[in-house]
Design a protein around this nucleic acid. Structure first.
Length: 454
DNA sequence: GTTCTTTGTCATGCC
DNA sequence: AGGGCATGACAAAGA
């Protein structure tokens, strides 16, 4: 006991029962480490570094400490944690993000023949005669004038009510070397489809050419492009921007939407269909009509001279100019508009689902992170509670130590059951009867409650 | 036969 | 005003 008894007495007797907090701590700090039954302030562990870190981290993450500990986090809240409510995960990294639903027309053709427009293929292709007969129309059309196809388009527009069988005969007679487009690629709306188109476009010198020639006949949904020589000139509008473009697209684009996987495998494209899709596709390959989508079948039935892909992907200006420049019946126009709307919406739906998936994945990540953070905060809370308990215990010992030294005016020990140490806001410490403390506390509590209500 | 998933479509609202 | 986009809801097909 290093603090003199007189010191305390002087303070307690001389100044009434007032003991400043400073004095109290002077008293405490002057105690040997083993005083207070072996517990001193030095034993109180500093506020755990991790706690500070935790607090900082709490602040850093803008997480309310208590809330973060006690609240579960739902997906919506987790999503709202994003400051700008945007996706933090790079969708491209997260998914393959084939988010370029509109691949360029004619961008990559795997058909080497396409690199030789205007070339007579028969001079280049080292194929035997029967293969030549089975070459698709696309293979043979490169040498033809674009304007011819312009006319073809117009003619097919004029085939409203035309007998498809008659047109088919035209193809048969021309032995598949009419000006059908087949070998363009990447013209589809969805990525999956565009991938397929890439492969589909690359028919190369497949042994399946024979089977593919049938698809060639179905190339454009309007699919009937009679042999140019058998057509009369209806109207020459090759000088129109869109018309020329469109005609050219008909030449270069693959309007075959579903080709046999075996044909795809023989190409230089590395893309391969998923096993599921291949099964589905191969199951339907013998039924060419079933190969076509509903809109493709409808378009085919109405002899729409453009592929569904073109209708969907065409810029609005071109689309409108197409509708105005071409003679189209109301039914055709209506169908074309429907096809365009549905096609656009299909792509939008695909993108929407992709986004939704990304959002869900991001939220799952957020949930994981927040759970980890919650665990950290829980651990920190346990450490805080431990430190608080140690502090309480030390105060308890200090309290009893003080009372063991206190003496009243007559030199008698002060009964700790009758008196209490009260620390005031101004730093002063008073020894007051317990009745006053309890009544004072009650008043304080009531006052606090009133203030809280207000 | 039931359930789940995928995909296309429609309706609607917003830009 | 028209077109496109986003998205919820529904249905069909397939696993």
């Amino acid at each position: 006991m290093t603090v003199s008894f007189v010191f305390l007495q002087r303070h307690l007797n001389g100044t009434g029962t007032s003991l400043s907090l400073e004095d109290l701590f002077q008293l405490l700090s002057s105690q040997p480490e083993n005083s207070l039954e072996g517990i001193s302030l030095g034993d109180i562990p500093p506020f755990p570094g991790s706690i500070n870190d935790g607090m900082n981290s709490s602040a850093h993450y803008d997480v309310n400490f208590s809330q973060a500990i006690s609240h579960d986090v739902n997906l919506h809240e987790a999503m709202l944690l994003c400051p700008d409510n945007t996706l933090r995960r790079d969708p491209v990294a997260r998914t393959s993000q084939p988010q370029e639903p509109f691949l360029q027309f004619n961008s990559h053709t795997t058909n080497p023949e396409q690199t030789l427009p205007g070339t007579n293929l028969t001079g280049f292709l080292p194929v035997v005669d029967h293969q030549m007969r089975n070459l698709t129309s696309q293979d043979l059309l490169h040498g033809l004038d674009i304007n011819i196809f312009d006319e073809i388009n117009l003619m097919s527009l004029a085939t409203e009510g035309f007998d498809p069988m008659e047109l088919s005969h035209l193809f048969e007679e021309s032995d598949s070397d009419s000006g059908l487009s087949l070998n363009s690629s990447q013209n589809s709306t969805s990525v999956t489809k565009s991938n397929s188109s890439v492969c589909e476009g690359a028919i190369g010198s497949s042994s399946d050419l024979e089977s593919l020639s049938q698809h060639a006949l179905e190339g454009a949904v309007g699919g009937y492009y009679p042999e140019p020589s058998k057509l009369c000139h209806v109207d020459h509008r090759s000088d129109s921007g869109f018309h020329g473009d469109l005609a050219f697209q008909h030449i270069l684009h693959n309007h075959t939407y579903h080709l046999e996987p075996s044909a795809l495998e023989s190409t230089s494209q590395s893309f391969s269909w998923p096993e599921k899709s291949q099964k589905i596709r191969s199951r339907h390959f013998n039924d060419t009509d079933r190969n076509l989508s509903r809109d493709e079948r409808r378009a085919k039935a109405l002899h729409i001279p453009f592929s569904v892909d073109e209708i969907v992907r065409m810029p609005v200006d071109s689309f409108n100019s197409m509708l105005s420049k071409y003679y189209l019946t109301d039914r055709q126009v209506s169908l074309i508009r429907d096809i365009r709307r549905r096609g656009k919406n299909k792509v939008a739906a695909q993108n929407c689902r992709k986004r939704k998936l990304d959002i869900i994945l991001n939220l799952e990540d957020d949930v994981c992170n927040l759970k980890a953070k919650k665990e950290t905060l829980k651990r920190e809370r346990v450490q805080c509670n431990k430190a608080i308990n140690i502090m309480k215990q030390k105060l308890h010992y200090l309290y009893h130590d003080i009372f063991s030294r206190l003496r009243d005016e007559e030199g008698r020990p002060v009964n700790p059951n009758q008196y209490a140490v009260q620390c005031n806001h101004d730093g002063s410490v008073l020894i007051i009867p317990k009745e006053l403390v309890t009544s004072g506390n009650k008043k304080e509590n009531q006052k606090g409650k009133r203030e809280r209500r207000n």
